[in-house]
Design a protein around this nucleic acid. Structure first.
Length: 440
RNA sequence: CGGGGAGUGGCGCAGUCUGGUAGCGCAUUCGACUGGGGGUCGAAAGGUCGGAGGUUCAAAUCCUCUCUCCCCGACCA
C-alpha cells in the first residue's frame, strides 16, 4: 500500500476526548473515529488490525473443534422472555420496536438465540457434543462508555457455546476452550492470565476471566508471581485431548479477579503475590442447564431418558483486544504492534520522494517484499523526514526500512526495529533477506 | 444514575467575568526555498461561536430551556 493512496488520517495533536493511551493512539493513528459515545467507525488501518485479531481467534476456535456460524445482531424479545432475562437485563439492553410493533432488541449476547437454534434441531445424545461460535457485533447500552474502544457500547465479540450430555462432557469443552484461549492470546503477543472469576448462580470452579495486566486496567487483580512467566508448551498439545492436567497445572496457582480475591490466601503468599490492574479480554464459564431448562432444550440419552443439555459459554472481546494490545505494547511515540496483528508487516520510509534513486530503491524494496508475501506500507509522500518518522513510529509497524540519499550513496538502507528502536545499516538485499528469510 | 467539566474553521486552544460584529498554533491550497526526527518565507481558503427562545441599538459574551461529549463514582465483555 502506498501512503499517498491509503486513507490514514493521522493527527499530530491529542484529541481532547481521549484520555488513555490506546484511545489516543487509535485516534491519532487514524484507526478509528468516534461516531457517538461508545460507538466507533473503523478506518482502514484499524480495520486491518481488527481483522487480523479476528482471524487468529477464528483459527484457534476451529482448531479446538468449534464450528463457526453467524447469528443476527437483532433478536426478538420473545426468546428473552422465555429465558426470563428480558426483564432482568435492564437498561443495558437496547430495545427496539419494529413497524409491526413487535418487541426486538440489539443483542448484548446470544445464549437465548443459540439455545433456540440448538433445541429446534437436536433430539439425541448422538448429536452431542457440539461447540458453536460466531464473531459478531454486540450492543450494550452502557451508562458510561469510556476508554475508547475498550469499553464501547458497540463491540465485536467472539462467543462460543458448548453443548454436552453431562457434566464431564461440559468440563472437557471448558478445558478445550481454556487452552484455546491461552493459545489465542499467546499468538496475539499477549500475556493473558486466567483468573478465577465469579461463577454466578451455578457455582463451582468453572469460570475464568483472562486478564492482561496494564496500568489502565479496569479492576484490581491478584495472582501468584509464577503465573507471570509461566511458559507452557501449548502448541504441542493434542487439541482433542481432555487437557485436564494442563488446566490443573495453570489453575493450581492463586489468581483472582476483584470480586474473588481472598485476603487470607494473599497474606500467606507474601512476596509471591502480585497485585496489578487488569483488562479482561476473555471470559469462559460453565452454566449447566440454566438456559436449556428455561428454554426446553433437551435430548434423549442412551437409555431414552430426556435430559437437559449441559452448556457453557466462552467470550473474547475482539474489538477490546485492539485497545488491550496497545495498552500492553506502546511507548511515548506510539503503538508497537506484535507482528501477528500488525496492520502491515513493514513500513518503507522514502526520505526523499521525487529523488530518482530513492524512489527506485524504495519501489524495489516494496515490490520484492510484496512478492515475498510481505505486506508493506510505503511512505511515498512528499514530506520531510521528520513527519515520516513520526507517523511511522505512531502507527507502530514492526519494521521500518529507511531509504535516504545518504545511505544509498554507500549502497545501504537502514532497518529499524520498532520494538527495540535498533537501527542497522545494510544492503537492500540484506534487509530483504532479514525480513523475508530469503534473498529478494 | 449521582457528582464535576467542556462545546468557538479539520485538530488543539484564546476570547465569555467587564456585550461593540471572531483570533492564535497546527493542518489544508498555491508559489519559492529547503530536505536523515513533526522546516522557512510569501499568498490564499475555511467558522450563522452545539441548538432553540429571550434581553438589548448591538450577543461567542447576559438570561431560560435543550442537545451532545469528556472525567470521577456506581455498573459492566
Amino acid at each position: 500500500m502506498r501512503l499517498t493512496e491509503f486513507f490514514m488520517p493521522t493527527l499530530k495533536e491529542n484529541p481532547n476526548e481521549a484520555q488513555i493511551v490506546s484511545h489516543r493512539f487509535m485516534l491519532r493513528a487514524g484507526m478509528i473515529r468516534q461516531s457517538s459515545a461508545g460507538i466507533y467507525s473503523w478506518l482502514p488501518l484499524g480495520h486491518r488490525v481488527l481483522k487480523k485479531i479476528e482471524q487468529i481467534v477464528r483459527e484457534e476456535q476451529d482448531r479446538a473443534g468449534a464450528q463457526e456460524l453467524l447469528m443476527p445482531t437483532i433478536q426478538p424479545a420473545e426468546i428473552w422472555r422465555e429465558s426470563g432475562r428480558y426483564d432482568d437485563y435492564g437498561k443495558e439492553m437496547l430495545r427496539i420496536t419494529d413497524r409491526h410493533d413487535r418487541d426486538m432488541l440489539y443483542g448484548p449476547t446470544n445464549e437465548e438465540l443459540i439455545t433456540e437454534i440448538f433445541r429446534d434441531s437436536v433430539r439425541s445424545y448422538r448429536d452431542l457434543p457440539k461447540m458453536l461460535y460466531h464473531i459478531q457485533w454486540k450492543f450494550r447500552d452502557e451508562v458510561r462508555p469510556r476508554f475508547g474502544i475498550m469499553r464501547g457500547r458497540e463491540f465485536l465479540m467472539k462467543d462460543c457455546y458448548s453443548f454436552d450430555l453431562d457434566y464431564d462432557g461440559a468440563r472437557r469443552a471448558y478445558n478445550r476452550m481454556f487452552v484455546a484461549y491461552l493459545r489465542t492470546f499467546q499468538r496475539l503477543g499477549l500475556k493473558a492470565i486466567p483468573m478465577a472469576a465469579d461463577p454466578g448462580p451455578i457455582g463451582g470452579d468453572m469460570s475464568h476471566e483472562f486478564m492482561i495486566l496494564a496500568e489502565t486496567g479496569e479492576s484490581e487483580v491478584a495472582c501468584h508471581i509464577n503465573l507471570l512467566d509461566l511458559d507452557i508448551d501449548l502448541m504441542g498439545l493434542d487439541p482433542k485431548g481432555d487437557m485436564q492436567s494442563t488446566v490443573d497445572s495453570l489453575t493450581s496457582y492463586y489468581a483472582a479477579t476483584d470480586e474473588k480475591r481472598d485476603p487470607a490466601i494473599e497474606a500467606g503468599l507474601g512476596d509471591d503475590l502480585t497485585v496489578a490492574r487488569g483488562i479482561e479480554v476473555g471470559h469462559i464459564f460453565y452454566f449447566g442447564t440454566k438456559y436449556s431448562v428455561a428454554m426446553n432444550a433437551y435430548v434423549n440419552n442412551e437409555k431414552g431418558d430426556k435430559v437437559a443439555i449441559e452448556m457453557g459459554s466462552y467470550g473474547i472481546g475482539v474489538s477490546r483486544l485492539v485497545g488491550g494490545i496497545i495498552e500492553a505494547s506502546h511507548d511515548d511515540d506510539g503503538i508497537i504492534w506484535p507482528e501477528a496483528v500488525a496492520p502491515f508487516d513493514a513500513g518503507i520510509i522514502n526520505l526523499r520522494s521525487g529523488d530518482e534513486k530513492c524512489d527506485a530503491a524504495s519501489e524495489e524494496i516494496y515490490l520484492k517484499l510484496g512478492n515475498a508475501g510481505k505486506d508493506a506500507l510505503i511512505d511515498d509522500r512528499d514530506q520531510r523526514g521528520g513527519v515520516k518518522f513520526a507517523d511511522m513510529d505512531l502507527i507502530g509497524l514492526p519494521w521500518q526500512i529507511i531509504v535516504g540519499p545518504r545511505g544509498l550513496e554507500n549502497g545501504v538502507v537502514e532497518l529499524k526495529s520498532r520494538a527495540s528502536g535498533e537501527r542497522e545499516e545494510m544492503s537492500i538485499d540484506a534487509a530483504l533477506n532479514k525480513l523475508t528469510g530469503s534473498v529478494g
